[in-house]
Simulated assay, not measured.
Amino acid sequence: MIVELGSRGYDVSSRALVMGILNRTPDSFYDAGSYWDFDAFLGRAEKLVAEGADLLDVGGVKAGPGPEVTEAEEMDRVVPAIEALHRRFDLPISVDTWRASVARESYAAGAVVGNDISGFADPDFLPAAAEAGASVVACHVRLAPRVADPEPVYGNLMEEVSRFLSERARWAVDAGIPARRVMLDAGHDLGKTPQMSTELLHRAGELVDLGYPVLLSVSNKRFLGELTGTDVGDRREATLAAHTLGIGLGCRILRAHDVVGTRRVADFMSAILQSRGAMA
């Protein structure tokens, strides 16, 4: 299986890519604005690259409820950041946004991936990505980003998530984006209870069977805390275990706060998968 990110193609048949998370928000659930200062942000990026990130994901609005962030504010947060990263590092950059206007400006600044947790709710999102030659992430969300959804109800969770993502992937291909530039994300904790997110992780292989690379975005999330009884700052081991399981089930892009740990997990699992292939 090949994943294309900008001008690069990655064979992920036995290798998982590590996507380093870079927040340009003062209120992110994990770092709570620790890297809000621009110099601190750039220092954090340098650290993630040195630790082995394959690509960087820049977001200017947290997924959960919070104060309004206007389109102009989001632009100011992410576009200069992407420009700076593009000048400094020779690796793909992703923009975490659901606004087509922000994505378009981010592509012009050097981003090559549009990571949209809304499931392409903005009708201009996919045309903007196709025009720029960008890759996209189709993510499942039950309601919408930033909308509280404390008691979600599904008839059949896996069936509904799979159908939603298959449809969004088809939208992307129909918009002119090659299938090798389309990734799927189950949207853990986005309109899901901890039990639902756990089920989606356990059954990640069913999303892999849809035929597109699966991005696993579970790093330090609430459902891991519920499973282990840990606060957000103490979920490293649970995250690394989830990444290991995800790779074993076929997930090939790992969105991570802890790049050094995730890199080691990805490299270890790559060696295992290559060994298995050699023996087959």
Rank of each mutant, 00 (worst) to 15 (best):
A81I: 02
E73L: 10
E159L: 15
S118Q: 07
D11G: 09
E71K: 06
H202Q: 15
G66K: 09
E131R: 04
D258W: 02
R15A: 14
V173D: 07
K47P: 00
P194M: 11
P178R: 05
K192N: 05
F41Q: 14
L143F: 11
G187T: 11
G155M: 12
A103F: 00
S7Y: 01
R168I: 01
V79N: 12
D76M: 11
S219R: 09
S94Q: 07
Y30V: 07
S106V: 08
R252D: 00
F89T: 14
L143I: 14
T193D: 01
L17N: 03
V147D: 11
G229S: 11
F268H: 13
G43W: 01
M279W: 15
H86Q: 10
D27F: 08
P80Q: 03
D267T: 06
V3I: 15
A266I: 02
V136S: 09
H202V: 15
F125W: 04
V259I: 00
G110N: 06
G52Q: 07
G9C: 11
F125Q: 00
K47C: 13
I247P: 06
I177E: 06
D116L: 04
R44A: 12
G155P: 03
M269H: 05
R236Q: 13
R77W: 12
G211A: 10
D37Q: 09
Y107S: 00
S14I: 01
A179G: 00
E105N: 05
G6D: 02
G9E: 09
F268P: 04
P145S: 10
F120V: 01
P26M: 12
I2M: 13
T70G: 14
P194S: 15
R170I: 01
P150K: 10
R99Y: 09
P150C: 10
L245W: 09
M1D: 09
D116S: 06
L17E: 02
H188M: 15
E159V: 11
E46G: 14
A138G: 11
Y30E: 10
P80I: 02
V182T: 08
D96W: 10
E226H: 11
L91H: 02
V153N: 04
L210K: 05
D234P: 03
A172N: 03
F89K: 14
V95N: 10
D27T: 09
A134F: 00
R24Q: 07
N220P: 00
A128D: 06
N220H: 12
T239E: 14
D11C: 11
S135C: 09
G33I: 13
V137C: 13
E206G: 13
A32T: 07
V61I: 15
A179S: 08
F125L: 01
I2W: 03
E167C: 04
G43E: 07
L190K: 05
D267R: 13
F29S: 15
H243T: 03
A238G: 15
T193F: 11
S14M: 06
L91W: 00
S28G: 07
W171R: 11
I117G: 04
M269N: 12
A238V: 02
L216R: 08
G20V: 03
G119A: 03
A241P: 06
L200Q: 00
S217Y: 05
S94E: 06
D57G: 04
V173M: 13
E51L: 05
P26S: 12
R104T: 13
L91K: 08
G191T: 08
G43N: 13
V259H: 00
G64P: 02
D258L: 02
E206C: 09
G6K: 05
E83G: 01
H140W: 07
G246T: 01
T244F: 05
G9A: 14
